[in-house]
Design a protein around this nucleic acid. Structure first.
Lengths: 187, 187
DNA sequence: CTTAAAACTAAACGATTGTTTAGTATTCTT
DNA sequence: AAGAATACTAAACAATCGTTTAGTTTTAAG
């Protein structure tokens, strides 16, 4: 029948994701997306519905990228030491040039208010809960079966991860590494 | 000579500041500012130049508000315990209803990219450095004169403050308090 | 080939962005 | 009371926002 798509949706979303990651949701315009993705606005809307759709797909894409270091964390037999390595891996993961790009999820959570799109909010919450659960699983290796303590420390680490994501955008390498070392001093 | 202003610049900036604090820089439009400040756009431009000018004045206003708990920190004879109290004071300071508003400075740092207005960027950096210096002074009370250790711990605390600001927007009270307790476990 | 469905280009949509301008109302000084 | 300087109102500015639409090109099936 008709002609087939001349672009790969996964490829163009990867480009969109990087744009959102660097610039945030509001600052990233359809014009910028058009240019970066290399396809016409019509094609963007045909493939993803609207700007929100592009963003939601970008989050999926981000999770896939992040899965590389998340899977490494899941796989390690180390407990707390593995978590600490994950924090270091994240710095490398979010590195841009001098300063880092932070975390797309954390950047978005910090940018959007309470009246933001519910789908996006739900996605952020869900993702945060998932990562926290992975943290809790790792903690379970080094800590005797103390559910409430593990819960507490997992909360501590997920919030510290928010701090790390912020910090990677503002502070230099030695400051961020020093931050990680201090986080894990009392675990 | 002519008629005098029918509004107090400090009062209307306070309202603008609260709007920026809740919604962020980009999301806050001149239309919203007009409504919230209760004066016409012309008056806003006459008093503050442009949107950037309103924002810069809002930051000044924010610093004045924050000075209440900063001064309390400065005044206390306690060292680390005083710092911990400051973190708790900040939660109260940034409280909105269920979730907090975070910190206007941190919110802005997280929202704006590297191509943001240089004046604003400089203001954020300057403020961050100031608070870090206050932290360092307090640490000096409990730690023997070890300049590099104090520098390290002040870095740790200022980044943790970024984490706290983020966390106050996303996590509930017990999670945030648990976070603070963990931060100060090893100080 | 013909044809029809989908992908493309490019222009325009109304709404809203930050900013300015023209015109009116007010008030202090002389 | 007259005049002049400033604050005000309200409308319009160009530019951009996210989104849609009309028209053309491509392509694969009949």
């Amino acid at each position: 029948m008709p002609r087939s798509k001349q672009y790969n949706e996964q490829e163009v979303i990867e480009k969109a994701m990087n744009l959102f990651w660097r610039n945030g949701y509001e600052t990233t315009s359809m014009q910028m997306l058009e240019k970066e993705m290399g396809i016409n606005k019509f094609s963007i809307y045909a493939s993803f519905g609207n700007k929100n759709g592009v963003f939601l797909e970008s989050i999926k894409c981000y999770k896939l990228r992040l899965a590389q270091i998340i899977n490494k964390l899941k796989a390690t037999s180390k407990g707390v030491a593995g978590l600490k390595q994950y924090f270091y891996d994240f710095i490398e993961f979010s590195k841009e040039k001098e300063r880092g790009k932070g975390c797309l999820i954390v950047n978005t959570a910090n940018e959007l208010g309470e009246d933001a799109n519910p789908k996006i909010q739900a996605e952020l919450m869900k993702f945060t809960a998932e990562v926290k659960e992975i943290f809790a699983n790792k903690l379970n290796r080094d800590i005797p079966d103390n559910a409430s303590l593990i819960e507490q420390q997992a909360d501590y680490l997920i919030i510290s991860m928010f701090g790390l994501a912020s910090a990677s955008r503002m502070f230099n390498k030695s400051q961020v590494e020093n931050y990680i070392e201090n986080i894990f001093k009392n675990l």
